[in-house]
Amino acid sequence: MNIFRFAGDMTHLISVLVLLLKIYATKSCSGISLKTQELYALVFLSRYLDLFTNYISLYNTLMKLVFIGSSLAIVWCMRMHHAVKRSYDKEVDTFRHYYLVLACFVLATLVNEQFTLREVCWAFSIYLEAVAILPQLVLLQRSGNVDNLTGQYVFFLGAYRAFYILNWIYRYFTEQYFTRWIACIAGIVQTALYADFFYYYFISWKNNAKLQLPA
């Protein structure tokens, strides 16, 4: 563990807490893409298959349980909770995310560390996480103005993988064998997808104005 990865995990945790706060406090999921939440639930379920078989540390196990539990709880809320699901705007959340799942699965069968179920699922989860934010970004551009909590959720979600890139650079220079190319390249793509969001987020912060994404 290094400070960059710990900062990344805490930033990721904050993004989840901000989203839970938004849904719980406002009893609304307006501006949130259910498809991105479903993709993230799939990312965690397919990445943490070895949750009970491959114990690394209490921290690792706890964080995995938090990410799996919160992502499933958010999907459940947006699909089942009577008040929250009413605020879900499925006419705007129209990204065909099943194509993302299929493309990532095909890529994972071709590019992986070992052609085993565990490694193919792990590579699948890494590729899927890189593109999971697309439905959410498309929804934000369609819905124009973004409420504060939703903007902060997306910001922290994007920032966490940027910390992981610093972690991979650190591990590259401090460890003998660097075997994290799949996660590293996918992480760079993932962070790059947030580039324009980060730009408009910074502008809104600098001008102390509402976050506006150009349609």
Partner: peptide, 10 residues
Amino acid sequence: PIGQPMHDEL
């Protein structure tokens, strides 16, 4: 386990 990639990151 030796030989299997260790995914110690979240």
